[in-house]
Nucleic acid binder design. Structure first.
Lengths: 158, 158
DNA sequence: GTACACTATATGCCATGGCATCTAAATCGA
DNA sequence: TCGATTTAGATGCCATGGCATATAGTGTAC
């Protein structure tokens, strides 16, 4: 049969529920702080950080990283450009696409926001991820992410 | 200072990124299967399962469970009602609110969808959560969820 | 070199959630 | 008991992402 034992099945269901609830609440809480202190939300912070760490990326690269559609990514870049935090530069190798980069304002913003996120996460999760079970958890979640990416699981159509 | 050591800080940032990416991809992948086989998405499946397991809940109970706003929850219930999967019954103890319940159609749907989710999760995560590090991970994520809920972290305004 | 298929991404329509607001009902206080 | 406050949730407007489509530029076969 396709499923594991029923005990495992129930475990995976509750793991998934817990995972989604952790993500939702942490995301919400980070949104609050980032909006208040920097006027951005978490998705924008993550895009800015990606552009800082991968200058010259294309729209499709961000879409792959975040597992969202190309259309949504393009619109997100529109907004970052409107705010003056990112720019599209012509791609000399392919005129269909642009190479993305942060502006100086964008660079300053992402560095400041990163400090906010670092402090917020430390405060929000407390010592839950300290110690040996915490280390195992980080490793397993990282491995799971790699597995999903390698298998293209949950990659959007558009 | 408010932050932990810089090593811990970087670890939490990448943990959070991995967590969000796992959640996004698993959620997307479950959406695909649930839409294809049952005509619902994951958020609807979770709401239906909650109603099955907590009959007589109110709108606010679902909002608390899922850490989304009351308004959004109310609209979600509207949709479930339109599809004939849930009903609002007058609450005899408080005429401002309703008691929610599944219809027979809703019950059948959630049971069928649950089997789909069970199989899908087993297939998507493979053996990543088996073994001792996997067990530690489930425990830590569950603990983190409890912590966030206890401290009302990321609870939306509305 | 030209037609054809493919790729990158921009854009439009729709669904959903956030947040603010509105209303009705319950509760509290003198 | 009656006005004032609080609570439950319904509704409207806006922002964002999914998905479909449109457009322009690239590569390929001949």
């Amino acid at each position: 049969m396709a499923s594991k034992s029923s005990g495992e099945a129930a475990g995976l269901q509750s793991f998934f529920a817990d995972l989604v609830r952790c993500e939702t609440r942490l995301y919400n809480a980070l949104n609050d702080r980032l909006r208040e202190r920097h006027g951005i939300v978490t998705s924008q912070f993550e895009a800015l950080r990606y552009l800082r760490d991968h200058p010259g990326s294309r729209v499709a690269d961000l879409a792959t990283e975040f597992a969202i559609g190309i259309g949504a990514t393009s619109k997100g870049i529109d907004r970052l450009e409107k705010h003056g935090w990112a720019v599209r530069r012509p791609n000399p190798a392919d005129r269909r696409s642009s190479l993305l980069a942060l502006t100086d304002d964008g660079s300053r913003l992402v560095d400041a926001a990163e400090a906010t996120v670092t402090d917020a996460l430390a405060e929000l999760v407390g010592d839950t991820l300290d110690g040996s079970p915490g280390a195992a958890t980080r490793q397993v979640i990282s491995t799971l992410r790699s597995l999903l990416e390698r298998n293209q699981i949950g990659t959007p159509t558009g």
